[in-house]
Design a protein around this nucleic acid. Structure first.
Lengths: 259, 259
DNA sequence: CGCATGATTGAAGTATATCAATAGTGGTGG
DNA sequence: CCACCACTATTGATATACTTCAATCATGCG
């Protein structure tokens, strides 16, 4: 039976999606929860249908209600500056949480836009807070996740204030590579889900600069670029260009790393 | 009795220092704790003696044990980049917490250096975590504080990636002004506890640029500068130069602000 | 009081932005 | 299915905000 998975089958399996069978649990909030705890967390989570590219998860100013975990796809978050231009504050991949910066406010301080067809888990914050009061491991995991976010943003500050354009782009590619690797994808071949414009915006560079540096890196045999397809030819060399301290590819066990 | 407060008196009052009589409680973790809860928090906190300018609270790589709350004085945090130069990640004033970025690691990812004679409250993280499990309001306050830190760092990213030198310096001065105001000091006259070099480092600018902009602002009657003494002549005009969206001085009740 | 360190100001250099023109890409409808 | 159009990316030429280098001046600490 069930020899040919059909449409109904596929729908059923979508509805059967739970934290305890989510491949991302180890990257997300369920990390180190017991099975029963995981089920309780699962109970408060709303799984979204696929969201279309270009649509918004929420807009800056919308009332804050929920944290979102990316299940599949990519999301960018951004604010709009005084003169109307956008500043991208982050790209979010499966297992990552969006909305942590809104916890002490009544409205989202940023907008979240879908970059490619994406599904998310919506976690109502009031309920999450309740559960965090009852489940020590969930509380710790939430706080750890926030601590990591603070740290990563400080690294981003360093990138923006001290690094050259080449270092920024190299660092960006390495970080992407590392994130793909952690999710079980190739660390050396991947597809950019954002435009050159968005990369430049995020890194504090003009589009043209990003484009030139991609070309330069290609000429230097560091990477192969073909539109949005990136192949990293030498993680080591790219790392040398990035000006980063540690060698991310050696950093297999991030929990024990001292950063 | 006790007509002339003497040395012993002063020492006694130092030892009598507790969360429930700390003027900063409303800016710090004790915020919205009940009196009993506050006393329990107070029970796990170690009050430091005065720390000397130039000394370190901890060094990058030291084992992570505690969060610190500044009680009086100023502290800067910084990382050291590959080529040995430092990147300042923040300045911390009374009531602010240091070390939140280390929570999910085993070692501090930054160093913390005293800028002027400072006292701190040391909060052992294990004990804080225990208490957070028992006291919902403490848990919420810790998480809120982290959420705010994440948000503020995103604003800093925006500053570093989109703002001009003048906008950066103006924003910096306004943020300082606001922080002094919240602590009951003058919003328009204050003393910089950091050097021009440190300001430049933090803002991603050369010292010379900071100095030139201070002079320019002075010429434009925005501020008066005399060494480390700053007088803001027009918060409104400075705000206009800063490129910030909101008018911070109108933002009296930050808890209800939606940012 | 003196000397090291920090701050200011000017002159010259540079990395990156901006402007401009062309080439490629992907989505849409005929 | 291909042709079209808008959008995105690339590449070159020029402009500029900020850095770097250099010299002088101020400050504060022992």
């Amino acid at each position: 039976m069930a020899e040919k998975p059909n449409q109904v089958e596929k729908l059923r399996s979508l509805n059967d999606f739970h934290c305890n069978n989510c491949g991302l649990a180890s990257l997300c909030l369920p990390l180190s929860l017991s099975l029963t705890d995981m089920e309780r967390l699962d109970g408060i989570i709303e799984k979204s249908p696929p969201l279309k590219k270009g649509s918004h998860l929420f807009h800056q100013g919308d009332p804050f209600t929920s944290i979102f975990a990316v299940r599949a796809g990519t999301i960018k978050t951004y604010t709009v500056t005084k003169d109307g231009e956008e500043q991208i504050t982050g790209f979010y991949f499966p297992g990552e949480l969006i909305g942590l910066n809104a916890i002490d406010t009544e409205a989202y301080p940023i907008s979240a836009k879908i970059l490619e067809t994406t599904t998310v888990c919506e976690i109502p914050y009031e309920k999450l807070d309740d559960l965090a009061g009852q489940m020590p491991e969930l509380r710790r995991q939430l706080i750890r996740t926030m601590g990591r976010e603070i740290r990563e943003e400080q690294q981003m500050m360093l990138l923006l204030s001290k690094k050259t354009a080449e270092e920024r782009v190299a660092t960006f590619l390495l970080k992407l590579s590392e994130r793909y690797r952690k999710r079980g994808y190739s660390a050396s071949i991947f597809r950019l889900s954002m435009s050159r414009n968005e990369i430049g915006n995020y890194l504090g560079l003009a589009v043209e600069t990003v484009s030139r540096i991609f070309s330069r890196f290609q000429k230097q045999q560091l990477i192969n670029v073909e539109g949005k397809e990136i192949e990293v030819l030498s993680l080591e060399d790219l790392h040398a260009v990035s000006g980063e301290l540690r060698m991310p590819s050696l950093d297999q066990n991030s929990a024990r790393a001292t950063s």
